[in-house]
């Protein structure tokens, strides 16, 4: 009972952290922030002050406004990527588990090949093909995560496909599609929820790395990774853009990771981590 409450307190905290940051991103235009593109050259490279709470960057732009708009860029890219990967990879995993046989073998082998690349390296390769921008970054992350979702969902889907209720549905003449959508899918909901949250956390770091390397969002887009790489050149003169952009990436990624971790415990006690 004690541990139930403790987990839920953690879950509540994680949810609050994520909701707060997502809300900042969603409502950025109506928060009364300064213009994230406005360059006030006389105010450049200032530390935190009353006018610019988190200081200004090398072009005199408000760091707070750029960070909150950076959340938008980051979340938009990562949500697109992870949902696309879930749609494609998840379908592959479920279809492979349902039909088994040669389809399963061929498709999962292909997933193994994509999975064999180090994550960031594969994302970089995809961007090398498509050109560097936010859309390519989203697509690159989606490609990287597709085999991960396929592998994650195929295992549990196999167990469900063997279950008596699926057998029962088949016996009363339900179609393949109906069985997959209304029997297999709902039973995967908790795994999907947990893994989507954990992978979003990782995707945020990948997206930040890509834009840090100049392979994601391009200037003057407000982007957390880009702020870090630009801020690095003025580190000793004006450390605040680099420091605060990094903290923002950390809080965003941390929130989703903690949420996934806490969800795992509360949704499925059998999956409970031993910590």
């Amino acid at each position: 009972m004690m541990s139930y409450f403790r987990n839920n307190r953690l879950l509540a905290f994680a949810t609050a952290l994520v909701v707060f940051q997502v809300a900042l991103a969603v409502f950025a235009p109506v928060l009364g922030l300064q213009d994230p593109f406005a360059q006030v050259i006389v105010q450049r490279m200032k530390g935190p002050n009353a006018l610019n709470w988190l200081g200004t960057d090398q072009l005199g732009r408000d760091v707070l406004a750029r960070i909150i708009h950076g959340y938008r860029t980051s979340l938009l890219t990562c949500l697109t990527a992870v949902l696309l990967a879930l749609l494609v990879g998840g379908s592959i995993g479920i279809l492979a588990a349902y039909y088994r046989g040669w389809f399963d073998r061929i498709v999962m082998r292909l997933m193994d090949v994509i999975f064999a690349f180090p994550i960031l390296l594969l994302a970089i390769a995809v961007i090398a093909i498509l050109g560097a921008n936010s859309f390519s970054a989203a697509l690159a992350i989606a490609v990287v995560y597709t085999p991960i979702f396929a592998r994650l969902l195929r295992g549990p889907a196999l167990v469900i496909c063997e279950s008596e209720y699926v057998e029962g549905a088949r016996a009363i003449g339900a179609s393949d599609l109906r069985i997959m959508v209304s029997h297999v899918l709902p039973n995967l909901a908790s795994i999907v929820l947990v893994q989507t949250s954990l992978l979003l956390s990782a995707a945020i770091l990948v997206e930040a790395s890509l834009s840090f390397l100049g392979l994601g969002a391009q200037p003057p887009t407000p982007s957390l990774g880009l702020m870090l790489s630009e801020g690095r050149n003025f580190l000793l003169l004006a450390p605040s853009p680099a420091i605060f952009a990094g903290l923002a990436i950390l809080f965003l990624s941390f929130g989703f990771n903690l949420l996934g971790d806490a969800l795992r415990d509360s949704l499925d006690p059998r999956l409970k981590a031993a910590t």
């Binding site: 870090l228 690095r232 990094g246």
Partner: peptide, 8 residues
């Protein structure tokens, strides 16, 4: 982020 840690 490892690159942030590096920069700091």
């Amino acid at each position: 982020p490892s690159f942030w840690l590096g920069i700091v």
